[in-house]
Design a protein around this nucleic acid. Structure first.
Lengths: 186, 186
DNA sequence: TAGGGCTGTTCGTCAAATCGAACGAATCGT
DNA sequence: ACGATTCGTTCGATTTGACGAACAGCCCTA
């Protein structure tokens, strides 16, 4: 994502050109489908202007891409983090390790963690950013997880999702309890 | 997400009110931080107007929320899918099961799957939507996964991410190879 | 009660985004 | 070779978003 608002227009310009090239449509045709003047689209693709959300939205629909795709630069890389590697966050209550696998890059909306915990005092998390949604898939062991007052017991392969902006726990019931957590910033 | 461009402004209006209520800031203060006139913000929150991306961007920064948060409505539920449950997709080459855990709801940008595969002929996936990014965390077993021509061998706990819009494989090397896949529609 | 500070709204003005038409260039078919 | 069609760009005219000031309402204090 751009660091400041001034870069957004040029970023959008590049996105519009890229997406239109992908569809193979002409500038005239995209403008017609979006219901905007082709002169407007021409200026936007050249980096001149500052489109309104309605204009940009119509273009997103015409190009068949989600809205956010036009304001976020593409990124495509192959990255491997081995079981022992990666930045690790230790819980204050110990017996709990979270390895950040895919941090929320600028403009994205999810973090992915690998969790490894041992039985002991329940690991309590403070609420995260409002609107956060957590997904948990248990790999091995057994765990009591979810909102503090309505936690669910999970076995290997089980899945649970719950709001992340309320107090919640991750309480390992067996040694070497591991899982994957997707923290989604809705 | 809004179905048509006309709803976007009212959706943004609601988002602006919601996010500002969350921060507890006053309209005047948010306008000051965003560097825009408070009259502009007042009109935007009332659903009048059609902000430019620069304006909306500045507001996103001032409110401390990602840009996309302002155009997507919130959602929050608790859902559990047990190891045996959920909609299952069988591969045409068999020996490969994918359970959809969290399908991409309107406006969201990721699917979450539980994978269980057996050794056999490599499971080849056709490219998905352009811009798709796949994250894979291996739970048990061993697998050769990634873009077809640059696949990586993974052991339990290993993580890999790769573009999903190119041909890629998931080739189990041990029985009962399980993992979690996050398909992200960037 | 009068004052100051804050809230959010509404007004007129100016700059800018959008539009529609005309333009030169390139391609295609007759 | 010539018109016909499409391409993307540039131009002036119009619409509209953004701004700043003035506004009424609220709370607290002197």
């Amino acid at each position: 994502m751009a660091d400041n608002a001034a870069d957004v227009v040029s970023l959008i310009a590049a996105s519009l050109r890229r997406e239109r090239a992908r569809t193979g449509l002409s500038l005239t045709e995209v403008a017609r489908r979006a219901g905007i003047a082709k002169s407007t689209l021409s200026q936007l693709e050249s980096g001149t202007g500052n489109p309104s959300v309605e204009t940009l939205w119509a273009l997103g629909v015409a190009l068949g891409v989600p809205f956010s795709r036009l304001v976020d630069p593409p990124r495509r890389v192959i990255q491997v983090i081995r079981a022992g590697e990666g930045p690790v966050v230790h819980s204050e209550q110990a017996h709990y390790e979270a390895t950040m696998l895919a941090s929320c890059p600028p403009g994205a909306r999810r973090d992915i963690y690998r969790i490894c915990a041992q039985p002991g005092p329940p690991r309590a998390s403070q609420p995260h950013m409002p609107g956060t949604l957590e997904h948990l898939v248990l790999s091995t062991g057994r765990v009591l997880a979810g909102p503090t007052d309505e936690a669910v017991e999970l076995w290997p392969g089980d899945y649970v999702s719950y709001p992340g902006d309320v107090p919640h726990i991750f309480d390992a019931l067996e040694p070497d309890t591991t899982g994957v957590i997707v923290m989604e910033h809705v």
